[in-house]
Design a protein around this nucleic acid. Structure first.
Lengths: 222, 222, 222, 222
DNA sequence: AATGAATGAGTGTTCATTCAT
DNA sequence: CATGAATGAACACTCATTCAT
């Protein structure tokens, strides 16, 4: 019976990856290469030619789909921020008791930053530009509410159960957790140069992970 | 009329600030403008022409003294890292008892980052470049030992007095303090965009300062 | 009296204006948009994409029907020159006495240029290109004979009646009339900028019309 | 030691035409080539690379001195308009009696347009662009007053002496003279194609010159 | 010590046109 | 007849750097 004749488009796309006209794949491919370039070189340092070369298509298509270097950069930002928010929503810490939930959240945040250096670098780069490109992403602001909601839920339940202190603001706590998880990745290079110690080394990583969870929980406990 | 025959350079510079050719002043002026440009635009984004324009001298002098755009960038890095290390050495926390000394150290770190956004931005930028320019600054590595020595001293004394736990590594602690003080400045823009809250606002700043001291001390206490 | 089923193309086009595929209408639509674009931007300045966008069809059709940007430009030229020659032939000045006929011809020329800025601009543009596209229009040369014939007829009859001088060449006269009617439209912008006076303003237009008729007749009269 | 020590700069420039650093000559050379290119190809059709190639210098200098393609185009316009106005002021027709003066003015206008096709083409091109670049030339408007003043003087004196009619507006007359002198040059190509007759042929030129003077004087005489 | 003029290699972008569906 | 996707060559413009004075 083989394959049903002329199945759906998406099926066809998967089966025949070599087909020449596949806009989605073309865009995805460009975005992937661009993410690497922008993350490695910054917005000003990135070269459109360099991106195009490592793509399956030509420079022209890059402009066809993304309009400009900045447009492409924005698309990269959008994708990369979308990824973390999507994952954060699948955490389901509301099902855990407060301390365990908080541990889980911190560990997730730690792991995500540790594994996604591109994301960390792009956020860093965006800060060099005063977040002006991020501000133009319409979907951005709304996506942040959920992290805060998650933290707020944990805090409320922890306070109610007498485990957590009651004077901690969820956004401040988010900033604290971010700081601890982000900085060791974003400043890995200068830190390594200064102290001859690479924070991303497996043994250090495990130690930092525990340390950060510990620091956050000690900060929260009554 | 005679100009006093060749006194010391620094003296001469002060005495006759209006004299037309003052190499030290020219260099200082270039470095100042360059610091602002590199910090605002990044290494790739900075424009040599733009720096030269805002200088009291010409583009040619910039090359005369610093050799290249990268040479100038390195000089800026050198100056800016030199400043913080110099100040750190004047802290004299060894004269304070451990908890008070640690509080003082954290507050100093907090205040320094909060007030020196240029420094924070330049470190951020340097991390984008994998710290490769920092690595070439010969004086750099040696200068970092003192912070760690200071922390080590505080930790040792705190452990001895039974106030601090005994399993904390000074470099890890330094990273933790740095993270908390650096991130809220370096990521001010994206944070502001995401949560509509500017971490550099005076009221938030005071709150964060206390919070960070609190978090560090809770982490250290037995 | 009914209309015969499926008569000429133009009839069909009118009957079923909403039918999806109507080659003639598609071509007409493309030509209309292209006339505006070429007239406004020149040949080099015109954008194929810009034309296609404002069309009811796609860019591909534009190439399908006209072959190239230059082919389309030629088609526009052809249409636009065809229009004026067609009208000129309907003037019937041969039925008027010489002076009245000449007045009528000048007024027609004046009005036509005044009302058809696109035509004037396209002729101007064609002159920038040394008339090289016009030269390729096979039908062009033959179409010009009639204006000259008209003028010649008027001149001959005017000379015979003793009203006109006998040393005026019809082609030279045509050039004179054209100059007076064309220039004030073609150079409206620079003239307006130079003298703060727009030659296309209604009051000026009427004045110029009289003035030009007057000048031509004074030039011709014995 | 030979050559007189340091003569004047301008003298030096003339003596040593091959000297490498001569900004004025560089600018002049660029302007000259650019005038030819813009006049031949229009603003959109002109190629910066093409201009640079025919220059004694490089493309970069073109941007160094003129900022952009449009900046260069404006400089060309400025130069070209400056030339004719300068000449117009040297006409001294006020010293001639009205009819002779008017003849002289028309002949000058005729000759200037006939000999300066570049000027005519550039004005034509500028009209395609709605005179928007001309409008930005600050010196432009003021320079036009003098032609009108000259015409006004001739008209006034002619009316006073009873030679000219008294209902002719100087700006309208200027437009008429311009039309007759400009059009035969600007539309030479289409005219030639249409009637197989080149208006710039010597014999025709002389005839047209007389004809135009005749037409203007007949228009003005009582 | 200081400077305006000059430069070659590269940088983001656009264009008319064609292909695969 | 119709279309979105794709393209290579060209385009205006910028950059860090050096030269002649």
């Amino acid at each position: 019976m083989g394959r049903p004749a002329a199945s759906s488009n998406s099926a066809r796309a998967k089966i025949d990856a070599r087909r020449k006209y596949d806009p989605e794949e073309t865009k995805r491919n460009i975005l992937e290469v661009a993410t690497a370039e922008f993350s490695a070189m910054g917005l000003a340092g990135a070269r459109v030619d360099s991106i195009a070369e490592r793509t399956n298509t030509t420079k022209r298509m890059l402009y066809y789909y993304f309009g400009s270097k900045e447009g492409l950069y924005e698309a990269v930002l959008d994708k990369v921020y979308g990824d973390i928010r999507t994952l954060e929503q699948d955490l389901h810490v509301s099902e855990l008791e407060p301390i365990e939930g908080m541990r889980r959240l911190v560990e997730f945040t730690f792991d995500y930053h540790d594994r996604h250096r591109d994301f960390v670098r792009l956020v860093t780069i965006e800060n060099i530009h005063g977040a002006k490109y991020l501000e133009q992403l319409k979907t951005f602001r709304s996506r942040n509410a959920s992290v805060i909601a998650t933290i707020e839920d944990l805090l409320t339940r922890g306070v109610a159960s007498g485990q957590f202190r009651d004077d901690v603001d969820p956004i401040d706590l988010h900033l604290m957790i971010s700081s601890l998880c982000f900085h060791r990745v974003s400043n890995r290079s200068t830190f390594g140069t200064a102290f001859g110690r690479d924070p991303s080394h497996p043994r250090l990583r495990a130690k930092h992970r525990e340390m950060i969870v510990d620091a956050v929980l000690r900060f929260l406990k009554k």
